[in-house]
Write a protein that binds this DNA or RNA. Structure first.
Length: 612
DNA sequence: GAGTTTGAAACT
DNA sequence: CAGTTTCAAACTC
């Protein structure tokens, strides 16, 4: 127990190398070992108690578990901290102002401090100026309380300016006692304060510009006067936005806060980051579910007042929480100029501000579009089948006409029809497997005289129709071979033999051609949209961006895009469903080069939408 | 560098 | 759990 405790929490001897962290010695833990960043409160993020869910456990019971897990933690910290620091441009580091005396050459105030050596290895930074973790200046806490950054970081004081320091090897018993007491008060005392996204690793954190937007303060801050824009605020100091966990008042540390943005002004890098953020948001329509949430700066306060009549005295985390709430609300509003909602899509679930990539086509293709597309393709296939069948019948009749009409032949034909009917039934049964509704829908969707259900259909057609309610898209893009497979291998049972196989092949070829054309159209749309977004971003007029919703387009713009899709295409006089329009363009266009002049579009015959 | 402000931690 | 005190860092001058 004691050994494990020392091994878990208490710093190692400074003689230990960083590599030795993995050693099994009792003093293997070097939580601070690679921490080359303002130790400050981030250092407190170390969690020596809770790994593996020791939370709630008494320190005594928690300790053994710490022993098991501390080393991986340390390793991850070593890897992650420096990265984190690199991104913290928001937080003006004062490290350069910190005495740079190297721990190892500092007066042997606390010669046995374990911190010196490990830190050395990582304290050489950028400009070559040796940097050292901040030293505490504790006077009354003996460096045995969380007030002390060193203690909170789980490290010995070393070269600090503290008085009556007990956070060292000589006072190990006292220190241990203090640790236990601290853990007793709060089992999470040494737990990381900043939680990353649910996806875990901090080095996977998502960043927008220079801001860590996924990280979140576990406890949240409670700032009252600093507006969460000073380093008093733990969130701000950690370079994260306040979250719903915070209980701060008059918070300005949220995405879109003009005060916060003001901190960036004059900082080119940050401005660029912000621009980049705006660009990303506009291009991808990444902000939440409702669109462009990136506030083009400076509107937040209005938003706050709008929603809360923002009073400085209003208690609350009002702006940590409410701000997040506001953001959500604001982002829903069509005009961001009026309410500069931050980019928070859903702070309640994803934290202060989470940006998610969305395809340029995200809002172009709707689920019903796929259904309609499949309907179109199915109809097309039916038409093809019909046409080919007619051709075949004509040729057969012609051949028959040349022969003497015989009773036998008519009898044979009846038998043939019976086989067809039987085969059809089998195929439908197979494909509708367990879902009568689908079978019905297939039949219903065959409308208009095409009477697909009563004709032999290609395996591909059947596959398309059968899968319409679940994997329409997949079925549509499947290769003919796949389609044949999907059709339950019924092709071998088909009565027309090779002739029908050719018909099926032709059907599939045409359907796939249509589908390919559709995809090409979509690609064109995407490119069009990309160009549009890019030009908007280049315009860099935030006000203009207010018109961007969702993926960055107004409905009218989107509509225009759809219109452009149909340019040069004879449109149906009847109102087509959106996608029907979309794909009718393809169909009609294809028909120009098509042996099949007439294509029945779904709506031309009324309701042909698959009923699923 | 001294003094003030601030908010987390500790305490009641 | 809320209110108060203590504390040390951040900040101001």
């Amino acid at each position: 127990m004691e050994n494990s405790e020392g091994g878990d929490f208490f710093p190692p001897n400074k003689a230990q190398s960083e590599v030795a962290v993995s050693a099994a010695a009792a003093t293997t833990v070097q939580p601070q070992v690679a921490v080359d960043f303002p130790a400050k409160k981030l250092a407190r993020q170390l969690d020596f108690t809770v790994f593996g869910g020791s939370s709630g456990q008494s320190p005594a019971t928690a300790m053994p578990e710490q022993t098991k897990q501390i080393q991986p933690l340390v390793k991850s910290i070593q890897l992650q901290r420096p990265q984190t620091q690199q991104h913290m441009v928001l937080m003006p580091t004062k490290q350069t102002a910190v005495p740079t005396t190297h721990p190892s050459i500092r007066p042997p105030l606390k010669p046995d401090s374990p911190r010196a050596r490990p830190r050395q290895s990582v304290s050489e930074v950028k400009d070559g100026t040796p940097k050292k973790q901040k030293q505490c200046n504790c006077k009354h806490s003996r460096c045995l309380k969380l007030y002390c950054e060193c203690f909170a970081s789980g490290i010995y004081c070393d070269g600090c300016n503290c008085n009556n320091c007990h956070n060292n090897v000589e006072n190990e018993p006292a220190r241990r006692e203090a640790v236990e007491a601290t853990l007793e008060r709060n089992p999470h005392a040494f737990r990381p304060k900043i939680a990353s996204s649910p996806h875990g690793a901090r080095d996977n954190k998502e960043e927008i510009g220079d801001v860590l937007v996924l990280a979140k303060h576990n406890k949240g801050c409670h700032c009252k006067k600093s507006g969460c824009l000073k380093k008093y605020c733990e969130c701000f100091q950690a370079n994260i936005l306040c979250s719903e966990n915070c209980k701060c008042m008059d918070c300005k540390n949220f995405e879109g806060s003009e005060e916060r943005q003001a901190l960036f002004h004059g900082d080119h890098a940050n401005n660029m980051a912000y621009l980049q953020q705006a660009a990303n948001a506009a291009i991808t329509g990444a902000i939440g579910s409702s669109g462009y949430g990136l506030s083009p700066v400076n509107k937040k306060r209005k938003g706050q007042e709008l929603f809360f009549g923002s009073s400085v005295k209003e208690p609350v985390h009002r702006h940590g929480q409410s701000q997040q709430g506001n953001h959500i609300k604001a982002s829903v509003l069509p005009s961001l100029s009026s309410v500069p909602g931050p980019c928070v899509g859903n702070a309640a679930t994803v934290g202060p501000s989470k940006f998610t990539y969305r395809s340029l086509l995200a809002d172009l293709i709707q689920p019903q579009d796929l259904k309609e597309l499949c309907s179109v393709l199915v109809l097309h296939s039916g038409e093809t089948a019909k046409m080919l069948a007619d051709e075949k019948d004509a040729s057969m009749k012609q051949a028959e006409g040349q022969r003497e009409a015989s009773l036998a032949s008519s009898t044979q034909e009846r038998v043939q029809n019976q086989k067809d009917s039987s085969t059809e039934k089998d195929m439908l049964d197979c494909c509708s497997s367990g879902d009568q509704g689908e079978k019905i829908s297939v039949e219903e969707s065959s409308l208009d005289g095409a009477d697909v259900s009563k004709r032999p259909m290609s395996p591909g057609t059947l596959a398309l129709m059968c899968d319409e309610s679940h994997t329409m898209f997949a079925a549509a893009v499947a290769s003919p071979n796949d389609l044949a497979t999907l059709s339950c291998n019924t092709s071998s049972q088909l009565p027309h033999g090779q002739g029908m196989t050719e018909t099926y092949a032709e059907q599939e070829r045409i359907v796939l051609m249509k589908f390919r054309d559709c995809l090409n159209r979509l690609v064109d749309l995407g490119q069009l949209k990309e160009r549009k977004c890019s030009s908007m971003i280049r315009g860099a007029d935030p006000v203009d961006q207010k018109d961007m919703i969702g993926n960055g387009f107004t409905t009218s713009e989107t509509r225009n895009q759809h219109d452009s899709l149909n340019n040069g295409v004879a449109k149906s006089a009847l109102p087509l469903p959106r996608t029907a329009q979309l794909f009718s363009a393809v169909v009609t266009t294809a028909n120009n080069n098509n042996p099949f002049p007439k294509v029945h579009r779904p709506d031309e015959n009324g309701d042909v939408k698959p009923k699923i």
